[in-house]
Simulated assay, not measured.
Amino acid sequence: MEHSLLQLAYGLSYGEAVLGSIPTNADQVEKIRLDPRKSADGEHDMDQLRDQSGSIATLAPAGGREDDPVDRLRAFIREGGYAPGDRLPPERELIVSLDVSRTALRKGLDALEREGAIWRHVGKGTFVAKGESVAPGGPLVDLGRQLTPFRMMRARIAVEPAISREAAINASGEAMMRMRLAMERAAAASTWAEYERQDDAFHRSIAEASDNLLLVALFDQLNQVRRAVAWGAVTRETVRPPADHSSFAEHEAIARAIADRNPEAAYEAMRAHIRSVSARLFEGEH
Rank of each mutant, 00 (worst) to 15 (best):
D244Q: 12
E115R: 13
R204K: 09
P69C: 03
R197K: 12
P136D: 07
K130G: 11
D68V: 04
V100S: 00
T235W: 05
D99S: 14
N223D: 11
S39A: 08
A230K: 13
P69E: 01
E184R: 14
V100K: 01
L213I: 12
I169L: 14
K31R: 12
A217N: 06
L6I: 08
E264M: 10
W231G: 04
P241K: 03
R154N: 14
R154A: 10
S276K: 12
A186I: 04
Q198C: 13
R154P: 02
A17C: 08
G232F: 06
I254H: 09
A257V: 12
D68H: 08
R120M: 09
I163F: 06
V128F: 00
Q146H: 13
R236I: 01
D47T: 11
V18Y: 07
T148A: 08
I258G: 00
R165K: 15
P90G: 00
R226E: 12
Y195F: 15
E30L: 14
A259E: 15
A175G: 06
L181D: 05
V70L: 01
E166R: 11
L88V: 01
M270A: 13
A158R: 04
E2F: 08
P136F: 07
S190E: 13
E2R: 00
E16S: 12
D86K: 06
L59T: 10
R156M: 07
A209I: 11
G85D: 03
A228L: 00
A259W: 05
R236A: 06
R256S: 13
S21P: 02
L218R: 01
R72K: 14
A75Y: 13
S55P: 11
R72C: 06
R185P: 00
V141W: 02
P139D: 04
G232N: 03
W119Y: 08
V134H: 01
L98N: 07
T148R: 01
A193Y: 03
H245N: 12
F282W: 03
A243Y: 05
L34A: 09
K124N: 04
E93A: 12
S21N: 06
Q221T: 06
Q224F: 01
V128P: 03
H203L: 09
A60D: 08
L94K: 05
A167C: 05
A171C: 08
I163W: 00
R178M: 15
D35Y: 12
A255F: 04
A279T: 11
L218W: 03
H3R: 08
P242Y: 02
E252A: 15
V70G: 02
E264Q: 10
A175R: 01
A83I: 06
D47A: 10
Q224G: 11
F76L: 02
M183L: 09
D27T: 13
Y10I: 10
L109N: 03
Q221Y: 14
A158F: 15
G232E: 02
G63R: 07
A155C: 13
K124E: 09
E237L: 09
R92Q: 15
S164I: 06
G15S: 06
N262A: 15
G42I: 08
